[in-house]
């Protein structure tokens, strides 16, 4: 099944983390032309881009820097969707640091203002793992057709507070940004590729932007 123009090129930016396959397979269920690349020429030529990421912010940023991709990503003007850690890499900085380091916060890509902080959840468990409800601030753009209270799959311990760039909220002891947006940059804290039909709808909306 393909929901988009067959000529549209969707590129998953290869940030060097292990599990890009699930994002790739999910996109391939929706559109024909999906590639994974860390080549700036391929990235610039894409119609839509996905910034995936699992692992730690520090390791992912180091990988992006070593591949000399930060300038390339910052200069993109086509729609970019950051997923999970990929969303967290889109803001200014993250409290998630290298293991055992006293270093200052990890500088991120600064595509959208904001700060990633460790979640404070009282007696609840971290990581925040499982299906939780999401409330879109407005039901347009990537949340078109997705009502308030729709379940998406989350796995994370760090989050961005609710603020001016929040596109959708969720709640786990504390409210946090389930999605953020500025200009051509969109980020989702949950995993649309693992969120069943709701996730497929969101990705379809993104591919149709």
């Amino acid at each position: 099944m393909s929901v988009t123009n067959a000529l549209q090129k969707t590129v998953i930016i290869n940030t060097g983390c292990a599990n890009i396959s699930s994002v790739k397979f999910a996109l391939q269920r929706l559109t024909q032309n999906v590639t994974v690349s860390d080549d700036p020429d391929v990235i610039y030529a894409a119609d839509k881009l996905i910034l995936p990421g699992v692992g730690s912010a520090n390791a992912a940023m180091q990988s992006i820097l070593s591949k000399q991709l930060s300038g390339c990503i910052q200069s993109l003007t086509q729609p970019v969707l950051g997923v999970c850690l990929g969303m967290q890499l889109m803001v200014t900085d993250s409290q998630e640091k290298a293991h055992k380091s006293n270093a200052i916060d990890t500088a991120c890509l600064n595509l959208i203002p904001g700060k990633v902080k460790r979640m404070e959840v009282g007696n609840l468990r971290l990581p925040h793992m499982g299906w939780n409800t999401v409330d879109p601030v407005e039901q347009n753009s990537i949340f078109k057709g997705i009502p308030s209270g729709t379940y998406f799959y989350f796995v994370h311990s760090f989050a961005v507070d609710v603020y001016a760039h929040t596109l959708a909220t969720s709640q786990y002891e504390m409210p946090f940004s389930a999605a953020i947006h500025k200009d051509n940059f969109y980020g989702v804290q949950f995993h649309p590729e693992r969120s069943g039909d709701a996730g497929a709808t969101l990705m379809e909306n993104f591919l149709k932007l």
């Binding site: 599990n19 890009i20 799959y153 590729e193 693992r194 969120s195 069943g196 996730g199």
Partner: peptide
């Protein structure tokens, strides 16, 4: 390739390399 909910793979993972191969194949 066909599943759109999370899944976990257990059994016989003895090293970082074993785990990496499973995650690369698309396990969460």
């Amino acid at each position: 390739q066909v599943i759109d909910i999370p899944f976990c793979v257990a059994g016989g993972i003895k090293s970082v390399q074993d785990a990496g191969r499973i995650l690369e194949m698309g396990a969460d």
